[in-house]
Design a protein around this nucleic acid. Structure first.
Lengths: 137, 137
DNA sequence: ATCATTGCAAACACTTTGCATACGC
DNA sequence: GCGTATGCAAAGTGTTTGCAATGAT
């Protein structure tokens, strides 16, 4: 996505497109392994030494609130973040620590919803070994 | 479950059945809303004033390691615990904060598993309003 | 000039660790 | 008696908050 498009997407979600926010959102879009706040901080710090952790957290919270980014609580020790907004599942590899997406059919999502509940979001997490790691356990 | 059965279950999983451990496990079995460590601590402290948070955490970690209890990471800010070991989904009510179980068919679980991955556990979390709360939002 | 954003330092909340005491076989 | 469990206090870790400085319109 070009810088201009990023600006437009952020603006249209009520987020003023500052240098830092563009960088965080761009990083999320281009790193589909669902990084943690700290991973984003360390990666961006190399590029722009001015970044602070506070700004990363501020930005992530704004992005989550606006609906552009979803938090993933697959591990209890740190939150991770996902810039894909369509419904899909998350696979957490306990060896390489990467989280990848997998498809979920609409039918499965419909079948899941329990009777009498009003659901707002569905999270499907699978933990195990990803294709890259399952042979070198 | 009678005290004796609890003793047997814990012992057979390599956990020496102390007063504290029995109380924590019994509490989990009898409170199917999936309490947090702190909820367990506060509830048991009333009954047995000797309990410390450390022991609650120690015990929960032992129970998780032995497979008798599963951790639930549906919220990022605290872990919650589940004494049901069969496969099922979790519904988190954002109003009353309770987590309830719902059934998942084996067929859905089979359909979920993505190609090429080796999965160890599946967690299905739905967030929203439970039947008790959906009318009084 | 005004209002939002940044970012340091400090505070916070949940969880783990170090270590001395107490318990169970 | 020896190994394990308990529990206090302290440390650790991820995240949020207070607030002054900076930036954008």
């Amino acid at each position: 996505m070009a810088e201009n498009d990023l600006n437009r997407v952020l603006s249209s979600h009520g987020i003023r497109p500052t240098l830092q926010r563009i960088a965080v959102y761009k990083y999320l879009l281009s790193h589909p392994v669902h990084p943690s706040a700290d991973t984003i901080y360390r990666s961006l710090s190399d590029e722009f030494p001015v970044f602070s952790r506070t700004t990363i957290y501020n930005t992530l919270n704004s992005l989550v609130k606006s609906g552009l980014v979803r938090p993933i609580n697959i591990q209890h020790d740190e939150q991770r973040f996902d810039s894909t907004t369509e419904d899909h599942g998350h696979f957490f590899c306990i060896k390489c620590n990467e989280i990848s997406d997998f498809d979920i059919t609409q039918k499965i999502l419909d079948d899941l919803c329990p009777e009498g509940y009003q659901n707002i979001r569905v999270d499907i997490f699978i933990t195990g070994f990803c294709p890259k790691c399952k042979d070198k356990q």
